[in-house]
């Protein structure tokens, strides 16, 4: 998982079947020069600090459990940060 900040949103009407209706956001990863497109199921707002899960961790955000391999998703917002020490 990586920590990052929501920097924008992506709208796409045509999506792979299982992603229909899911929101896509752009996340800038902390301390790294990269931007990731992630699925957001937690309704994060722009500017918010979040944790992004990748790979099978991302699929577990959308559909917990081992039998979720058909999801075409490699990044998802898994937590909206309220605080950190």
């Amino acid at each position: 998982m990586k920590r990052g900040k929501i920097i924008g949103e992506v709208w796409a009407a045509r999506k792979v079947g299982k992603l229909d209706g899911k929101r896509l956001v752009l996340v800038g990863i902390d301390g790294e020069d990269r931007v990731v497109v992630a699925i957001d199921t937690l309704s994060a707002s722009v500017g918010q600090t979040v944790l992004v899960s990748f790979g099978s961790g991302a699929r577990n955000v959308l559909a917990p459990g081992p039998h979720n391999r058909a999801l075409v998703c490699d990044a998802a917002i898994s937590l909206l940060e309220d605080g950190a020490t």
């Binding site: 920097i7 924008g8 949103e9 992506v10 709208w11 796409a12 009407a13 045509r14 999506k15 792979v16 992603l19 896509l24 752009l26 722009v46 500017g47 075409v72 998703c73």
Partner: peptide
């Protein structure tokens, strides 16, 4: 390809 983009907004 997971989605075809209509519009993006970056702040």
């Amino acid at each position: 390809i997971a989605a075809i983009v209509d519009h993006t907004e970056i702040k």
